[in-house]
């Protein structure tokens, strides 16, 4: 009993110590959003603001159409997350549990998507979007991010670790592979799907370069691009930038806090396999 108490205490200590180290830059970003530009840029810098003022938040609300950018970002994130959940889980299941000709080659070829810097595909993707007539539209912004090699790989690894027994069980019941996937495997992969949701939301929310290239008016502009406008050529409005970033990140943090509660012990599994 005594041993496990010290054990817990040490755990607390480590978690809090490193947690604070990880969080410091973020906390500083929030604190700095209340500072004036002069205070923010002074040498040496300060941690706590001298006065807490909301001026930066008000200025930024006036200088960029924050709410409509918010809305666009949410729409795009929802589209991408739903699409990735559907497409990636299906493909991952097929790659992990089914056998078909050419699957290994196709899998590796799809993985190569991750191996080239995004910069290199911007120009051709822009030309494709122009051919499709989707420049400066929300679909144009969302489309490439609806497909993911990363998500597919993530879920494939998860399905690989699930037992094959259900496959046989489902087949005896006369289910198609898709049926087995949808009724048996999909419900079991909740925690992996939640990781994918967190990743997709994060990626989509912070995605910057592609939306910047493809949108050419406020009609399809997203938050990350709107905030970047505060970085001028000769002057960066750091204080407003921090305020904008703080406002932009709050929903994502809420999403994280909400979803990660569902990381629960694999209850379903322990019952069935035994």
């Amino acid at each position: 009993m005594h041993r496990s108490k010290t054990n817990i205490a040490v755990s607390y200590f480590l978690i809090i110590l490193f947690g604070l180290a990880m969080a410091t830059p973020f906390v500083w970003m929030i604190l700095s959003s209340f500072k004036t530009e002069v205070e923010l840029m002074q040498t040496p810098p300060s941690f706590l603001p001298r006065h807490y003022k909301l001026t930066n938040y008000l200025t930024i609300m006036q200088s960029i159409p924050f709410l409509s950018f918010y809305l666009h970002t949410i729409i795009i994130t929802v589209i991408r997350t739903l699409a990735q959940l559907a497409f990636c889980s299906m493909a991952a299941f097929a790659f992990a549990k089914m056998h078909f000709k050419g699957q290994n080659i196709v899998f590796i070829v799809l993985l190569t998507v991750l191996m080239v810097p995004v910069q290199m595909i911007l120009v051709p993707d822009y030309i494709i979007m122009r051919t499709l007539g989707l420049v400066d539209s929300l679909w144009g912004v969302a489309l490439p991010g609806m497909f993911s090699a990363f998500g597919m790989f993530l879920l494939r690894q998860f399905y690989m670790s699930l037992p094959n027994e259900f496959l046989d069980a489902g087949r005896i019941d006369g289910c198609s592979y898709f049926g087995v996937f949808r009724r048996l495997y999909l419900p079991l992969s909740k925690s992996a799907l939640i990781s994918l949701v967190i990743f997709t939301v994060m990626y989509s929310w912070n995605d910057f370069l592609w939306p910047l290239i493809i949108s050419s008016s406020d009609n399809s502009r997203v938050l990350s691009v709107g905030i970047a406008l505060l970085q001028g050529q000769n002057r960066v409005y750091y204080n407003e930038l921090m305020a904008g970033a703080t406002m932009a990140t709050i929903p994502v943090i809420l999403i994280f806090v909400f979803f990660q509660r569902y990381f629960v012990q694999g209850i379903a599994l322990s019952g069935i396999k035994g």
Binding site: L122, V123, R130, L212, I213, Q231
Partner: peptide, 16 residues
């Protein structure tokens, strides 16, 4: 368009 990406964007749209 933000300054840091302005020329990249101008170039991309010009190519297309």
């Amino acid at each position: 368009v933000p300054w840091a990406q302005y020329w990249q964007k101008l170039q991309t749209t010009t190519v297309a």
